[in-house]
Simulated scan of single mutants.
Amino acid sequence: MRINLGEDEQPEIGLIALIDCIFFLLMFFMVSTSFSQQTATQGQRELAVVLPEASTSLEPAGTSGGVVSISVDKKGNLFLDGEEISTKGLQDHLRKIGEANKQTLVEIAGDETASYKTIVSVIDICQFEGLTNIALQTRNK
């Protein structure tokens, strides 16, 4: 006895699933190739710090002790006069400056996307070493 199950259907390739897979692979390669990291040239001395804007700004008064410039980039790395430095190295350097002259002006240039905690820790280090003449740099509109 033979059972009739109906007409035999021809197998089909699922085009919708195939198109989804190809679209997913295309998007994956487009996104993965667009994230190329820029390499810094060795001769370049400019830091990638974008200062926050301020509606008004004052020029700091002249100081007799000189100026120390500290920069904080968006990743939280510290730079002293353009050279990268660790937190411990910064504290040691500020201790020497504080022993020589407590009136030294410390300019802190923090990136606008830098962590507030990092900027506050730099201010705390300055105050701990006796340097209270601190200026936060901004850019004018």
Rank of each mutant, 00 (worst) to 15 (best):
M1E: 04
I3Y: 15
G6R: 15
G6L: 15
E9V: 08
E9W: 12
Q10E: 15
P11V: 02
I13S: 09
G14F: 12
A17N: 11
A17W: 05
D20I: 08
I22T: 15
F23T: 13
F23C: 14
F24H: 13
L25C: 13
L25S: 10
L26T: 06
F28P: 05
F29N: 13
V31A: 14
V31M: 15
T33G: 07
S34Y: 03
S36V: 05
Q37G: 09
Q38T: 13
A40L: 11
T41H: 11
Q42T: 04
Q42D: 03
Q44H: 04
Q44M: 07
Q44D: 13
R45T: 14
R45C: 08
E46L: 11
A48E: 14
L51D: 06
T56C: 02
T56F: 05
L58S: 14
L58W: 03
E59C: 07
P60K: 14
G62K: 08
G65H: 06
G66V: 00
V68Y: 02
V68F: 01
D73T: 01
K74T: 00
K74N: 04
N77Y: 08
N77Q: 11
F79N: 03
G82E: 07
G82C: 15
I85K: 01
T87Y: 00
D92C: 02
H93Y: 03
R95Y: 00
G98I: 03
Q103H: 08
Q103C: 03
T104D: 06
T104I: 03
L105M: 12
V106S: 15
E107L: 09
A109M: 08
A109P: 01
A109G: 04
G110D: 12
D111I: 04
A114E: 04
S115R: 13
K117V: 15
I119R: 13
I119V: 15
S121Q: 10
S121L: 07
C126R: 06
C126Q: 04
C126W: 02
E129L: 00
G130I: 02
T132P: 01
N133T: 04
L136P: 02
T138M: 07
K141S: 02
